[in-house]
Nucleic acid binder design. Structure first.
Length: 262
DNA sequence: GTGATTGTTAGTAA
DNA sequence: ATTACTAACAATCA
């Protein structure tokens, strides 16, 4: 369930549960068709090493050490990292299992197989090669306004395009636009300078809040759209009285209020 | 059976 | 040459 806040929560999990433990084994799960995972050579590189630091850029989570190697994890739509201690059972749909010294293990569970794990040498170089834009919590305001404001497509699509800025997906783009009262299909280059700056400020505010609660949506205010993504439901904004609608924008479902977003 | 799902991407069109 | 849009990928759930 992975956008920026979820991935940051995953990074924290790695930081807390998987650092400074020698890797004894890294092995593939049962059904690994249609999913990209390290081959035996790369898995072998992990043996005997430790993860001593973590990093995140957009929706990519990293664990590794100064001298490498690193793993990079992309959760896809339904991927998740699950640390656990033996003799607990390995979760179902585990595609990759890392066994550390002692009883600690780390499972990459990915039922829908749209995620991946790769072994790399340098996270910074990897981000560059993949063509990702700056992290959404790292990009400067002027750079944001320039790159988003020069996009002809829908503002929602611009916020979600990982090569412009990395980390925002379908739910959080909806949330940002809901907050600032802008319809998801508005052309990005037709937003005023004030609206662009408002988008930037709101993006930071909301993402930081999502990170604060470690992407636990139940802890977010019930005046947020993310708590009320139901077509035909009442707009959760105080005093609005509008109705939540679902439309298609850029091939994705865009939930928005029919009254205060335009 | 139908259509939806928090993601990416190859191919196509403008 | 870029940029933007569509369909496809896979499994599961309502």
């Amino acid at each position: 369930m992975p956008e920026l806040p979820e991935n940051e929560a995953q990074r924290l999990t790695l930081e807390r549960e998987c650092l400074n433990r020698t890797i004894e084994k890294a092995e593939l799960g049962d059904d690994v068709s249609y999913i990209e995972l390290p081959g035996s050579n790369e898995l072998g590189r992990l043996k005997g090493r430790q993860f001593t630091e973590t990093w995140r850029h957009g929706k990519n989570v990293f664990a590794g050490s100064k001298s490498g190697p690193w793993i990079t994890v992309h959760l896809g739509m339904t991927g998740w990292l699950i640390p656990f201690d033996a003799p607990d059972d390995t979760p179902d749909h585990t595609k990759l299992l890392i066994t550390f010294e002692g009883d600690r293990r780390l499972a990459f569970r990915c039922p829908r197989k749209l995620g991946h794990v790769r072994v790399i040498d340098d996270p910074g170089a990897y981000i560059g090669e993949q063509g990702f834009g700056p992290d959404a919590l790292d990009i400067a305001k002027d750079a944001f306004c320039k790159v988003v404001g020069s996009t002809r497509g829908a503002i929602k699509s611009a916020l979600m395009s990982q090569d412009k800025l990395a980390g925002i997906g379908n739910l959080w783009s909806d949330e940002i636009l809901f907050r600032i009262g802008v319809g998801p299909e508005r052309r990005a280059n037709e937003l005023s300078d004030d609206e662009l700056e408002d988008t930037f400020d709101t993006m930071r505010e909301l993402l930081k809040k999502g990170v604060d609660v470690e992407a636990d949506y139940a802890k977010l205010p019930d005046t947020w759209l993310i708590r009320k993504r139901d077509e035909g439901g009442g707009c959760p904004r105080r005093g609005c009285g509008g109705t939540i609608r679902r439309t298609k924008v850029g091939g994705r479902s865009a939930y928005h209020c029919d009254t205060h977003q335009s």
